[in-house]
């Protein structure tokens, strides 16, 4: 990193920290999914991964000084509003994420009742015997 690049980097981090956080949480979630042998932790990693994407969408909708996008029916809407569309997208994506977590946990419950462990490697060993 050059000396000239440093202030730019700092400025980006101070104004666009939500996007930086998005990237970090995304990577952390993916890492947990790959690295942890514990099935429940894998699902938690998946949830983190998805939450990062929700954060990204909400961050794109934010507008400095913007207000809630509720337009009065009598008209007269002035000023700046936060974009409602990304919020709707995130709401839908949260519902999808919750259902997937439910299915995943149901499968884990079945695996735990069959093998008595949450460790993926142990389960694989038992299956292959």
């Amino acid at each position: 990193m050059t000396l000239l690049g440093m202030p730019l980097m700092l400025e980006l981090l101070s104004t666009r920290y939500a996007y930086a956080t998005f990237a970090v949480i995304l990577a952390v979630g993916l890492y947990i999914m790959i690295a942890s042998p514990n099935l429940v932790k894998k699902v938690i990693g998946l949830n983190l991964f998805q939450s990062a994407i929700f954060l990204f969408f909400v961050a794109t909708a934010y507008m400095h000084g913007g207000s809630v996008p509720v337009i009065p029916t009598e008209g007269g809407a002035v000023g700046e509003y936060a974009s409602p569309l990304p919020h709707v997208i995130v709401l839908t994506a949260i519902v999808v994420g919750v259902s997937l977590t439910a299915v995943g946990l149901a499968l884990i419950v079945r695996l735990y009742s069959l093998y008595g462990t949450l460790n993926e490697e142990t389960i694989r060993e038992v299956i292959n015997e």
Binding site: M33, V43, I108, R110, L111, Y115, I123, R124, I127
Partner: peptide, 14 residues
């Protein structure tokens, strides 16, 4: 409802 298929399904899900 077997253990093998549950593990395959979970892997697919992740």
């Amino acid at each position: 409802r077997s253990g093998r298929s549950a593990l395959a399904a979970l892997k697919y899900l992740l």
